[in-house]
């Protein structure tokens, strides 16, 4: 049992969720899969007076393709993303990341919207979504706005969301011809969270790298792009030497975390090794 009492309300629509959220004020919390909120409430890290269950808003629980954009509803759970044929076909690394979150039972409950709203520094989705150039759509009773993923994760457990906003969907550009993606992680041996997790999307045109995005999670207080590595790779032939040289810059300009699992120095090393491995997989897939 959770150690304190609170109110529980069910929102059957987004509009109802907005009004319940505004009634509850700053002591309201949204419940989707509950796999972040409930553990936090057990520890009293989170003590909302009102829990608003949005899990039954079915419009937010679907994966659709809209032209060149794959739209993943915020309430889609990790197991559904990992098993989705559309995700596998159009944004493979997203499914790869979803399939290594937590364990099967956690993947059956946890949702993509809840995951990124929480912005855990060691979570898998932030790294892969940065590499996939995703857009987060958030709505409130005053309208809708699109947030580029590059602007979304701002600090430890902090995002660009403002009070009263609810993530409704994540939009991901479909990967085109000659583009490969990959997500891999070095998991904490006990918790399976990413000590370092790396998402890579890379495009090859006539043997040269013409586009590249690399997202790293787990290493710093929030996920970041390996910008220097991306710059070094752009225009290169992606030879073994090119990749080796570029990977040395994977954590450049970042202040990395130090904890029981890994020192900051070790994380710098892991970043370069994991980025190299992920690039090699993505390049192989780009070549097809």
């Amino acid at each position: 049992m959770i150690p304190y009492s609170f109110d529980y309300k069910v929102a059957d629509s987004l509009e109802e969720a907005f009004s319940l959220l505004s009634e509850a004020g700053e002591n309201g919390a949204l419940l989707a899969g509950g796999h972040t909120l409930i553990p936090a409430m057990k520890l009293r890290l989170s003590e909302p007076d009102t829990v608003i269950d949005i899990s039954k808003i079915s419009d937010l629980n679907q994966i659709t393709k809209d032209g060149d954009i794959l739209v993943v509803g915020a309430l889609t759970n990790h197991a559904t993303v990992a098993r989705s044929g559309d995700v596998m076909t159009y944004c493979r690394s997203l499914g790869e990341a979803a399939g290594v979150i937590g364990d099967p039972q956690v993947r059956n409950k946890g949702t993509i919207g809840g995951n990124i709203a929480h912005a855990d520094p060691a979570s898998d989705y932030p790294g892969v979504l940065l590499s996939l150039n995703a857009t987060v759509v958030a709505k409130s009773d005053s309208g809708s706005r699109s947030i580029a993923i590059d602007d979304f994760f701002t600090a430890l457990f902090e995002t660009a969301l403002t009070e009263g906003e609810i993530i409704t969907e994540i939009q991901i550009p479909v990967l085109g011809e000659g583009t490969g993606s990959a997500y891999i992680k070095f998991p904490n041996p006990a918790s399976r969270y990413a000590v370092v997790g790396v998402g890579v999307v890379i495009t090859l045109t006539d043997g040269k790298c013409t586009a590249c995005r690399i997202g790293i999670t787990g290493a710093a207080d929030h996920a970041f792009r390996a910008s220097v590595t991306e710059e070094v790779l752009l225009g290169s032939d992606l030879s073994t030497d090119d990749i080796e040289a570029a990977c040395q810059h994977a954590a450049e300009g970042q202040e990395l975390l130090s904890d029981l699992a890994a020192s900051a120095n070790y994380r710098v090393h892991l970043c370069s090794v994991m980025v190299k491995r992920a690039i090699n997989i993505a390049v192989e897939r780009a070549i097809g």
């Binding site: 529980y8 419940l31 509950g34 796999h35 409930i38 553990p39 829990v51 269950d53 899990s55 197991a79 099967p104 039972q105 956690v106 059956n108 409950k109």
Partner: peptide
Amino acid sequence: GAAIKSCTVFAVQ
């Protein structure tokens, strides 16, 4: 039909 950890779900859910 889905395996879940019942310590991390409220009964009301």
